[in-house]
């Protein structure tokens, strides 16, 4: 379970402090798929990056399984990050390493023995459907295949949490569906808690149980996907929901 309480993040800019997150609170139940949706600049990227402390919050608290993480440093911070997987919009695979070596990376840096790494990598590549790509390099793969490798890599060390930072924003609509189905399947098999940010309502609809709508650095509404989308309260939620509808269909 992830509890985010009154999280605030300010950046110092040349024009003075900029507030990226303003008193954001949300709870992600263990094993759920929690979507955070918002437009560009809403603060969703800062929010997801706070969970593994790629961003250090200015105020507020983040608790993972009841334990506050925001002051973790050094070896404890490293241990936290190794217990959380993350995938990105731009995949971010190591370009000079094979698929096998990329998936092996989280295990290798944790000092896992060679044969244990090999069998785990085999298992993961079978799971993501790339068992014939062990020795390929990222540049030889399509975007969808690269994201599958990234997912295998993120899951290698059996994390309890998987952070997905716009995981399908660089992919076409068909590949997007396949990647989302894979994430859903992994959630079902491993009970990994997934936090996913996106600007596409279709992504939330397809795999999320819960949704948080973020706009202007604040939470506008949240709850089970079905409830929020059936009875959207915030104007921005309605805009996101009906952005693809013909003009007269929008309320």
């Amino acid at each position: 379970m992830i509890e985010i309480q009154h999280l605030t993040k300010q950046f110092a800019t040349r024009r003075g402090p900029f507030t990226a997150l303003d008193d954001v609170s949300l709870t992600v139940a263990a094993g759920s798929i929690h979507g955070v949706i918002g437009l560009s600049g809403a603060g969703k990227s800062t929010l997801i990056r706070s969970i593994n402390l790629l961003e250090r919050p200015t105020a507020g608290d983040i608790r993972i399984n009841g334990r506050s993480i925001i002051d973790l440093r050094g070896a404890e911070l490293i241990r936290l990050r190794r217990s959380i997987g993350m995938i990105f919009q731009s995949f971010n695979l190591l370009s000079q390493r094979t698929v096998h070596a990329n998936v092996a990376y989280p295990l290798a840096i944790a000092g896992t023995p060679r044969d244990a790494i090999d069998s785990r990598v085999n298992e993961l590549l079978r799971l993501v459907g790339l068992e014939d790509k062990h020795d390929a390099y990222p540049a030889q793969l399509s975007g969808g295949q690269q994201q599958r490798v990234a997912i295998a890599r993120a899951m290698a060390a059996r994390p309890g949490i998987l952070l997905c930072d716009e995981p399908t924003s660089a992919l076409d609509i068909v590949t997007t569906g396949q990647i989302l189905d894979l994430l859903s399947e992994i959630n079902r098999l491993t009970r990994v808690t997934i936090v996913l940010i996106t600007h596409e309502i279709a992504v939330i609809r397809r795999i999320c149980n819960h949704v948080t709508v973020l706009d202007g650095s604040r939470v506008l509404e949240q709850g089970p996907v079905a409830e929020v989308f059936k009875n959207p309260q915030a104007a921005i939620t309605r805009q996101l929901l009906f952005a693809h509808e013909p003009r007269e269909a929008a309320p």
């Binding site: 990050r81 971010n92 990376y105 840096i109 944790a110 890599r153 952070l163």
Partner: peptide
């Protein structure tokens, strides 16, 4: 960033 996030 990915390498940092993985706990390097």
């Amino acid at each position: 960033e990915a390498a940092t996030a993985m706990g390097s």
